[in-house]
């Protein structure tokens, strides 16, 4: 088998297994729930930590996320969402809720910008899903600075105001960058 085909086969199998474990979790299967946690907690924790920027808070949020997963897994439909997308949406939502609930003043997030700005590593690209590759292709079609802002918004959970301040542009400008980029992404992904 061609290495790339083989890799894709492995990845698809892993994804199907995870989807199956989530479905079982929805039926109350604790072993499956544990397997979901083992397979995904490091990734979700990385995602949450970037947004919360504080380990203790991020661990609290991670706990909330998996308690939610346990109770809401019944609603997961493998035909409609990939398991990682479904889990990541819960994780980002909880993390953003948490940082929106705290005072906007204390958010020194400079360190987080490095990774968000970085282009995906060449090695890592091999592990990407087809959806991710398509999204990257579409992000590449945007103005580089706009694409960078979309990534920063996604990984840091920043508001329009905070992004505008970071980039040194008026809020109105930031809104139009992001809105235009989102519409272009949608068109590109649907094309």
């Amino acid at each position: 088998m061609h290495p790339e085909t083989e890799r894709r086969g492995t990845r698809d199998a892993a994804r199907a297994a995870l989807a199956g474990q989530l479905v079982l979790t929805g039926k109350g299967d604790r072993a499956a729930f544990r397997a979901v946690y083992q397979a995904t907690s490091a990734k979700l924790f990385g995602l949450i930590l970037r947004i919360c920027n504080d380990r203790e808070t991020a661990e609290d949020v991670l706990q909330e996320v998996y308690v939610t997963v346990w109770n809401k897994a019944e609603a997961f439909d493998p035909a409609r969402a990939s398991p990682i997308t479904w889990l990541a949406a819960i994780a980002r939502n909880r993390a953003i809720d948490r940082i929106r609930a705290r005072k906007p003043a204390a958010q020194p997030l400079e360190a987080a910008a490095e990774v968000a700005d970085a282009a995906p590593l060449a090695d890592g690209a091999l592990e990407q899903s087809d959806e991710k590759r398509r999204l990257e292709g579409c992000l590449d079609g945007l103005e580089p600075r706009h694409a960078a802002v979309i990534r920063i918004a996604f990984f840091e959970g920043r508001t329009y105001e905070s992004l505008a301040e970071r980039e040194g542009v008026p809020v109105g400008t930031m809104k139009s960058w992001i809105r235009r980029s989102l519409i272009r992404l949608r068109t590109c992904l649907e094309g």
Binding site: S41, F45, S82, T85, A88, A89, G124, Q128
Partner: peptide, 16 residues
Amino acid sequence: EARLGPLAEDAPAEAP
């Protein structure tokens, strides 16, 4: 969520 979610693949893994 389906469109933007795949970006999460870039999150670095970090053990809690």
